[in-house]
């Protein structure tokens, strides 16, 4: 223990000794705590960091289905990735899905939450029913919608057939003009209730007295919504947007069940592209490079989003 640890200004040597002992004990106590938590932190870091480090490592090798070439290949996979028009197209498709589905889910979820904020009869039953799609596995939801859109037995074509008074053979998942709407309908059906639930909770927490005050002051519905309700629910709404945005960026199951990325690669998302390359064609190192790109892109988006909503603080 260095001498500087002992306070020299204290006139009573006994008190000074006791104070020094207390400081020492506190320091030891703090260190002991660190020692206790160190293994857990080490394991957590190992679990979190190791796969990332390994991913980076593999992305600089050339492991394929038939070759376990672990020699350093420089930027080979990154060059190939940048040149891959299919990869960029799949990224664009992902952005399109996200850009359309996210606002629609938000607006619909908010509208439904606004509707159910009032104590209407049968509210609990309706809310429970509305939430059902969220609890279904996305691949099951995709398979269900695949049946719904089936041209021979699907109810959608059946209903259209009744309406037009003849057989309707609409190939929802093949026709290039209909395939995006079909996927988006399934996606929005499944995940709007998630938005609805979060926003319903947020709306329930809005201070009623402020709403009453606004009403007394003669503020209209829009004014009240934009000046009082929206600022109040914004933190929850921002998190909901972030979660759904990230989810949409990883969109896989519903598209896979409905189109497998087709026709051609017209609806292939970046997750499907990575799956096909990595787990069907075993271009392991190339897929590692793609995965790293996805991680980097998502990290940037998350950081910007958190900064924007000031939650990072």
């Amino acid at each position: 223990m260095p001498a500087s640890c002992f306070p020299l200004t204290n006139s009573n040597p006994t008190e000074a000794f006791l104070a020094a002992t207390r400081t020492l004990a506190a320091t030891r106590d703090r260190r002991f705590k660190y020692v206790l938590v160190a293994p857990s932190i080490f394991v957590l870091l190992l679990i979190g960091i190791f796969p990332l480090v390994y991913l980076v490592l593999v992305s600089f090798q050339n492991i394929t289905m038939t070759d376990m070439d672990t020699s350093f290949q420089g930027l080979l996979n990154y060059r190939e990735m940048i040149r891959s028009t299919r990869m960029w197209e799949s990224l664009l498709h992902t952005v399109i899905f996200t850009a359309i589905a996210l606002p629609v889910e938000l607006v619909l979820g908010l509208a439904m939450a606004q509707l159910f904020i009032d104590r209407i009869p049968g509210r609990q039953v309706f809310v429970a029913l509305l939430v059902l799609p969220v609890v279904i596995s996305p691949i099951v939801a995709g398979a269900t919608w695949s049946l719904m859109f089936d041209n021979r037995f699907g109810p959608i074509n059946q209903i259209i057939g009744w309406l037009i008074g003849g057989e309707a053979t609409i190939l929802w998942t093949i026709n290039p003009n209909l395939v995006y709407p079909a996927i988006l309908v399934a996606e929005i059906w499944q995940w709007t209730p998630f938005m609805f639930l979060l926003l319903l909770a947020a709306l329930s927490a809005v201070d009623k007295s402020q709403l009453e005050a606004a009403s007394i002051d003669g503020a209209g519905w829009w004014r009240t919504f934009f000046r009082i309700v929206l600022p109040a629910i914004w933190p929850v709404m921002a998190i909901a947007i972030l979660i759904r945005g990230l989810d949409l960026f990883r969109l896989f199951d519903i598209v896979w069940a409905l189109t497998r990325g087709g026709p051609g690669t017209m609806t292939e998302t970046i997750s499907i592209f990575a799956y096909v390359k990595g787990f069907q064609q075993f271009d392991t190192s190339f897929t590692a490079a793609v995965a790293l790109l996805i991680i980097v892109l998502l990290s940037i988006v998350v950081m910007l989003a958190l900064k924007r909503v000031e939650l990072a603080r």
Partner: peptide, 21 residues
């Protein structure tokens, strides 16, 4: 070698045919 890649291109091509290309 890597038959699936060749077949995948073929499968995608056939689905493009039905999309009207």
């Amino acid at each position: 070698i890597q038959t699936d890649k060749y077949e995948e291109a073929l499968r995608q091509g056939i689905s493009r045919l039905w999309a009207g290309e």
